[in-house]
Write a protein that binds this DNA or RNA. Sequence first.
DNA 1: GGCATGTGTATTTTT
DNA 2: TACACATGCC
Length: 733
Amino acid sequence: MLSREAVITVRFVKSRTSDASWLEGLNDAQRAAVVHQVGPLLIVAGAGTGKTKTLACRVAHLISAGMPPERILLLTFTRRAAETMLDRAAKMAGIGDGGRMWGGTFHAVANRLLRTYGRAVDLTPDFTVMDESDAADLIHLIRTELGLGKGEKRFPKKATLAAIHSLMVNSQRPLREVLEAQFPWCVEEAARVREVLEGYGRRKKSQRLLDYDDLLLYFSALVSSSGMAEKVAGQFDQVLVDEYQDTNLLQAEILQGLCGARRNLTVVGDDAQSIYSFRAATIRNILDFPKQFPGTTVVTLEQNYRSTQPILAAANAVMKPAKERYTKELWSTRKSNEKPVLCTCRDEAEQTESVCAAVLDYRERGIPLMRQAVLFRTGHHSAMLEIELSRRNIPFRKFGGLKFLEAGHIKDMLAFLRILENPHDEISWFRVLQFLDGVGPTSARRIMAQLGVQRGEDRALPAPTDEDSPMESPAANPLTMLLQSPPAVPTAAKGQLQELRQSLADCQGVRHSRKAASSTIDSGERAEPAVSVQIERLRKFYEPVFERLYDNASVRARDLEQLVQIALRYRSRRSFVTDLTLDPPHSTSDFSGPPHLDDDYLVLSTIHSAKGCEWDVVHVLHAADGNIPSDMAVRDEQGVEEERRLFYVALTRAKDRLYVYFPLRYYDRRFGASDGHTFAQLTRFLMRPARALFAEQIADGDDGLAPIRRLGADADPQSRVRRLMSDPRTESA
DNA sequence: GGCATGTGTATTTTT
DNA sequence: TACACATGCC
């Protein structure tokens, strides 16, 4: 897996030695940020202004000044970003193990701290972390139990309920307010929504499940609890936060607790790139930072090292009408005569055609696919392009959109592992039991009750006393129950049940149906086979189920292989399962043939996932109103403003060349199947004067891309010759 | 009653 | 594509 910023890292490290000469490579503003001494620091870093470099240098500087690496905490948006930065800093500072520094997402750091200090906030260290869809599934379970959704009125669906809950927690606003603001059609049902969510809270607690929001919630509790705050906060002398514009209120609260009175806090961000309000991120965090942390030093980085001046001019023009922001005007010394291109196409097919042609053309001209990217608002915007790319044997990887982890078969496999990890995990049982023939929701519930999956909800967790938590007696463990005294199942499933029990037992490293040791130690500690081995064993049971369940089983089987590959890197099942939910692989290469990682490939990405990345050539698809801005987001001004920033993020990913495509007609699935074509309007963000900064092309005309398009045609003699000469392996990879 | 199966439909962005 | 919902089968 290639780091998005790997290129920069290598280049930088090679040209610098490990003494402090790296300070010389900085401009004045960057240097000021790097050498800042104590107290809160806000670095307002425009797109491409060397933010990563500055942050890494600052860490290196701190270390050179004598700060022990393990007393530095770097919070980032993705784990990869943390790794990249710490790695760079370690090399600059000339220390071998950057591993001693703390780095990761808020969620990952929360997980790590809570495994150690969780007891202080009434949490046993053996909790499992659920992802968003697990949360939705658990909510669904409660929703049906309460008989909701059967009434004559429609009741919010599980995903909606999960979203409501998450927004409420992360924005720390009361339920009613959240409903009124974001889910007005659910206001009437407020009482029942509350009922479901309360049940959800109780269930999580009794089953030791934490969702993403809980991680932050408990983290916050930890750093504000009277006993632990000192201890936890006292571990760190300096806290640095990247992408601060995309943090939420809860995260700001955590920082308050974490930095305590010392307030040695550095935050970096760009208010113009705040694009995660749907996850309750609030632009207020960065705008109000100086108020929240009095005595803040503000440093603004405005020199852009990434893009050519014409690209920046266009991006700035798009941003100009934005209302509240830190004013900054990005500038670059990278001159160019090439304006960004606005390419009007007849329809999506022509857009696809144009992109393919341009991509291939640039490749011919020496820009590898890797240094080009296609960006779009939503995952399915690239559907047609993906088909065309595979038809033409152009390898690509897609970031964002449907994730590996969300695929049903991956969730299936994880469900087994999670039962082994936490035998009270209700959603996993519910999923697994229904693999048995003739077992549906009702039977699954019955069996779960029989096994005692659901602990009494009122029963408190074991008091946080001494080291090893006094687990319930082995007999009360649902997994042990299953192995010792199999529950009644439909006759058709008898054999399957036997297989299931055997597979699970094999993973435990404990002999089937033998009296479990009376030890009170966590059963996971007993000589458990490697995770990859466990997966292989579970497949014995799962394989037939899998083939019955999914009609494209052969394609999906590859993913299971990949899961095994990932598992090989992990020592324990717990860290594997946790890591996978906390830092899921987020690319798919399903359609582009077998993944040769060293091969050149084109990057397709949602704009959200493109954050922090850069490419020589960037193609932005579907720049039509309704797509950008998404018509889901245009109800209020804030929504539109966020879409503006999103578009800005897309434009500022480009270093040398930028293409924005505008298909005149697009297919809108909402309007029937026969002829759902809609005539589109150009995105409102490219009205005058921004539009004037683009060179306009008509894809279909005799000018513009016509010469480029010819290259793609088989009939073109030149391309036929080229094809004959080129290496077949790279050509058809 | 509960399960398998088929049909229609609605799909933002993600730690 | 996956999910909610309706229908027919054990």
